[in-house]
Lab assay of single mutants.
Amino acid sequence: KRVEVKPYVLDDQMCDECQGARCGGKFAPFFCANVTCLQYYCEFCWANIHSRAGREFHKPLVK
């Protein structure tokens, strides 16, 4: 058996893009583990950032 640990998915993290400004101060539910991102995102910022060319295939890690 093999266990994969993702220590970078933490609870209670603010969106790295808007710092809570676009999501009413809620914590960010998404983390993008792609090396070009490596950031936490609220729903609004995830949709906005990941609609751009080259990022549309990134998969979010959801808390």
Rank of each mutant, 00 (worst) to 15 (best):
T36N: 11
V35R: 14
G54E: 10
T36E: 15
H50N: 00
C15Q: 02
E4H: 04
P29I: 05
Q13H: 09
W46S: 02
R2D: 12
L10I: 10
Q13M: 10
F57N: 15
C18D: 00
V3L: 07
F30K: 13
R2V: 06
E56H: 07
V5I: 08
P29W: 05
C15Y: 02
T36M: 09
D16T: 15
I49G: 05
K59Q: 10
C32L: 00
K6N: 12
C42V: 00
V35Y: 04
Q13P: 06
C32Q: 01
R2S: 13
G54N: 15
F27P: 12
G20D: 09
Q19I: 03
V5M: 12
G54S: 12
C42A: 02
K26I: 05
A33L: 04
E17A: 07
T36I: 09
V35P: 15
W46V: 02
G20C: 03
V9F: 14
V35E: 14
L38Q: 13
V35I: 09
R22S: 11
V5K: 08
N34A: 11
Q39F: 03
L61M: 12
A47Q: 12
P7C: 01
E56D: 11
F44S: 12
C23K: 06
E43V: 05
V35D: 09
F27D: 08
C37F: 00
P60K: 15
G24S: 10
A28E: 05
E43M: 04
F31E: 05
C23P: 05
R22C: 03
E4M: 05
A47L: 07
Y40L: 03
R22V: 04
R22Q: 14
A28V: 05
Q13F: 05
C23I: 04
A53P: 15
F30T: 06
E56N: 08
G20E: 03
P60I: 02
L38I: 08
Y40Q: 06
S51T: 12
L10M: 13
E17T: 06
G24C: 05
H58K: 03
P60C: 07
V3S: 12
A21E: 11
Q19V: 09
L10K: 14
P7T: 11
Y40G: 03
V5S: 15
L10P: 11
V35H: 11
E56P: 04
K1R: 06
S51Q: 14
D16H: 14
C32I: 03
H58V: 01
H58A: 01
E17V: 10
K63Y: 03
H50S: 01
L61R: 11
A53T: 14
C37T: 00
P29L: 05
K1L: 03
F31T: 02
E4V: 06
F30D: 04
A21I: 06
P60S: 05
F31R: 04
K63T: 09
Y8C: 08
F30E: 03
F57P: 11
H50W: 01
F44L: 12
P7R: 08
C23F: 03
S51A: 13
P60R: 10
G24W: 05
K59P: 05
L61Y: 06
Q13I: 06
W46F: 13
L10W: 13
C18V: 01
C37M: 01
G24E: 12
K6T: 10
R2Q: 11
N34Y: 08
K1V: 03
D11S: 08
P60A: 10
F30H: 14
Q13A: 11
H50L: 00
R2P: 12
C18F: 00
W46R: 02
S51P: 08
K6A: 10
A28L: 03
G24A: 10
K1N: 15
F30G: 02
C18L: 00
Y41W: 03
K59A: 08
K63L: 04
K26F: 04
P7S: 10
P60D: 05
T36F: 04
Y41I: 01
C45H: 01
W46C: 03
P7V: 01
C37P: 03
R2I: 13
G24Y: 09
K59N: 05
L10C: 10
V62M: 14
V9K: 12
R55K: 14
E43C: 05
V5A: 09
C45E: 00
K26Y: 03
R55F: 13
H58C: 06
E56I: 08
R52Y: 09
F30A: 05
A28P: 06
A47F: 05
A53R: 13
V62R: 15
C18T: 02
K26L: 07
C37R: 02
F30P: 02
T36K: 11
K26P: 02
A21M: 06
L10E: 14
E17F: 03
P60M: 07
V35F: 08
H58N: 02
Y41G: 00
A21H: 05
C32P: 01
H58G: 02
P7D: 15
K6R: 08
A21S: 11
V9S: 13
C15R: 02
C37N: 01
L38Y: 15
K63P: 15
Q19A: 12
R55M: 13
M14D: 13
L10Q: 15
Y8R: 14
A28H: 03
Y41D: 01
Y8D: 15
R22L: 08
Q13D: 04
V35M: 04
Q13K: 15
D16G: 15
R22N: 11
C42N: 01
K1I: 06
M14A: 09
F27N: 09
E56A: 04
V5L: 07
